[in-house]
Every structure is written in C-alpha cells, then in structure tokens.
Computed example of a mutant assay.
Amino acid sequence: MESLTEEAMKSYLMNKVGPRQRLLSKIVEEVQEIIHKLTKEISYRDIRFQPISKSGYHNENIKVLAPAQFVITVPIKGLLGYKKSQSRRWRYYSMSGSKLFSPIRDPEKMYQWLEINQFLKTLQQWHENDVTMDGDIMPAKVIEVFLKLVEDSVKACNLSNEVSILENFGSLIRLIVETSEFQVEIELIPIIEVLNRWSDKAKWPRCFSRWPSREKIQCVKSLGFNLMARSSYHWQLGFDRAEYMLMEGIDDDGGCRKICYQVLRQMKEDVWCPGNKPVITSQHLQTILFWTCEKYPHSKDWRVFRKAFLRLVRKLYKCVNQHFLKHFFIKETNMFQYSSKNELDAVAQKLILFLKNPVLQQD
C-alpha cells in the first residue's frame, strides 16, 4: 500500500486500473457480440426495436455499472419528432385496461407520461393495443412485448448456453450472459432517443455555474435525452449521451479529473464496495465527479492529484453517509433513494478509515 503521491498514483494506474480496462474491454466485446446477435433477431421480428451495433469498448448503448453488472439500452424505432405534451389530464385505467375510480398518481421528477400524439411521425405499429392504452404509450406493455421477443430470439439464435433470462422483476428485463471470464448480469432497457431537445424537467445548467463551458453546455444539451421503459405507467428520463459528452475532454485544461475518477472507481471496486451488484456503481461515482467539477470549476483545483482525489473521496463519503446523492441534471432526485441503508453505512465506515489513512491498496 502506498500513500497518495504522484508515483503511487502512476503505479496504481499501471498495476490496477490498466489491467481492469483491458479485462473490461474483452468482456464488453464478448457481450456486444452476443447482444448484437440477439437484438438483430429481435429487430427482424419487430421493426420497432433497433439492433445494438458492434462499436468497440465505448458503445453508447452499453453502460458498465460494475465489472459484472451492465445496463444495455435498446433504441426504439418509429417515433420521431418528439414534442412536449400541451395538456395535463388524469388517467383512470389499470394495467389490464379496467376503469379506475381514482386517477393514477403523477410521475416522480425523473419520470413522465408519454402520449402517442407527442410524436410528429410514428410507425403504425406504435398505435396498436399491444403497446398503448387510452392514447398513452405504456412502458410496461412495451417491456412485455420486448420480453417475449427476447425469449423467442434467444431460442432462435441458439443462445441458450450463453444467455439466461432472469425471472422478471417488476418492469425490468434482466439477463445473465456467460463470458470467458465470468457471468455478467445485464439489464436490457428499451429506450426512445429524443435528440436535439433538452428535457424541461432538467433545470441545467444552474445559475452562476462556471462548469462546464458554454460551448460544452450547448453541445451536451443538443444531444437530448432518453425515455426509458423501466416502470409500469411512466417513462424514466435518462441522460447517457449528455453524461458521456461531459466526460469527453474533461481534462483538456491539463487537469487530473479523469485519473481521479479512475482511481476512485478502482478503489471502490477493490476495497470500499466490491461485489457483483454493489450498492455504489460507476454511475454514482460519475455523478460525484460532476458535482465536484461544478463546485471546483477552475483548472488550478485539478492540478494536484492528492488534493483533488481526497476532495472526491470526501464528497463520496458525505453522500454515502447521508444516504443522499442528487442526480446531476435533475437534482430533486436522490440516486440513493432505493439503496440499502445498511450497505451504504458499511461503505461509509470504509471511507472513514481511508480518509484517516489515505493510501492506495496495490495488492
């Protein structure tokens, strides 16, 4: 174990972060191959779903939450020209289509309703009853259709030895994919990509914010957002492209933000929160980085690794200890809302020990 010197950091990057990157690159490539084959068959059976392309380690549809935990988004076709709903109305239907006496609750901050008439151009298939209810496109119905396609396509592609479908948990589709190294659990999410339009719910950038630059903000917002089928009635907002763009060129000023993030992620995976389904994921760490960049926007704040890294660890500890991490784009949302408090507390204790004796664990 070594203290947070520049030499220790470089050694850690070479001996720990580098091998992880190479391993994950191999795993992602294997998973991509399987998911490409699977989604190609799905798209052949139902043109409403696009196949996942094979595009190397940085595939915008694949998010690595942990080495054995991926999220893969499957873009939906045939819904173009998204526009905001002009009116608010109450819904009185159940998932089965029966009439309710009281209206369905309004969506939370990270969710929204989605009506078929919010799109200027639509495939006729999106008007069918298998995915709509009373003019709404229902994520639960989309998931039901998609799950059946996944099941049939696994058989059709002879992927039963590589892919296992886990028991459906709520409105989630989860797979186990066998790789040459270990099993990877994957959540498959059908998404609608809304391009060249920013979500009205995302009040970003914030007033007086000096990070990122105006040019980067315009670029990020032009990438739009996603609507993800992850619940029964409401579509969840996602900002994968925006987050990826924020990470791109994050150290163009010569800072060490990305290195700090990589070391933070490695320490999280090896020491603070290991395991196949950790309570803290790379998504949380990336959010920690974004908030810290916003608070410390100047180049001089990211010159010295030790100082910058400990700043990130302290921010992580504060959020984990309080069981509260604001989403970067929709700050009213707590990303730890449904996380195990006991697991978060266990991570907080490890972070305290590290902050008392900050050394990088090389073994």
Results as ranks from 00 to 15, higher is better:
Pro278Thr: 00
Lys326Glu: 07
His327Gly: 05
Lys318Thr: 06
Trp126Phe: 01
Lys356Ala: 08
Ile165Val: 11
Ile259Ala: 13
Glu243Ile: 02
Val177Trp: 07
Pro103Phe: 09
His234Ile: 02
Leu316Phe: 02
Leu172Asn: 14
Asp152Glu: 15
Gln349Ser: 11
Leu13Lys: 10
Asp301His: 15
Val71Gln: 06
Gln86Pro: 09
Lys16Asn: 13
Asp345Gln: 14
Gly56His: 06
Phe354Gln: 06
Val154Asp: 04
Trp272Phe: 03
Ser96Thr: 13
Met110His: 09
Glu332Asn: 12
Arg105Tyr: 14
Thr179Gly: 10
Met138Trp: 06
Lys99Pro: 10
Trp90Thr: 10
Leu195Phe: 15
Leu120Trp: 02
Arg306Gly: 09
Thr132Met: 03
Gln125Pro: 02
Phe328Asn: 01
Val131Arg: 05
Gly81Arg: 01
Arg105Phe: 12
Val184Leu: 05
Gly78Ile: 03
Ser3Trp: 13
Ser180Lys: 05
Ile116Met: 05
Lys155His: 09
Ala202Asp: 14
Gly254Arg: 09
Arg48Ser: 09
Ile288Ser: 04
Asn129Gly: 08
Phe354Val: 05
Leu353Ala: 15
Gln118Glu: 06
Gly78Arg: 01
Asp152Ser: 14
Lys148Leu: 12
Arg306His: 12
Trp272Thr: 00
Val154Ser: 06
Ile165Leu: 11
Asn321Glu: 04
Val131Asp: 02
Lys216Arg: 08
Val304Tyr: 14
Arg89Pro: 09
Gly170Ser: 07
Leu166Pro: 11
Ile34Trp: 00
Leu147Tyr: 07
Tyr233Ala: 06
Trp291Gln: 13
Leu360Tyr: 01
Arg311Glu: 04
Asp363Arg: 09
Pro278Cys: 00
Ile35Pro: 07
Pro278Ser: 01
Asn342Trp: 13
Lys16Gly: 01
Phe49Arg: 09
Arg88Ser: 13
Gly255Phe: 14
Glu243Tyr: 08
Ser209Gln: 11
Leu149Asp: 07
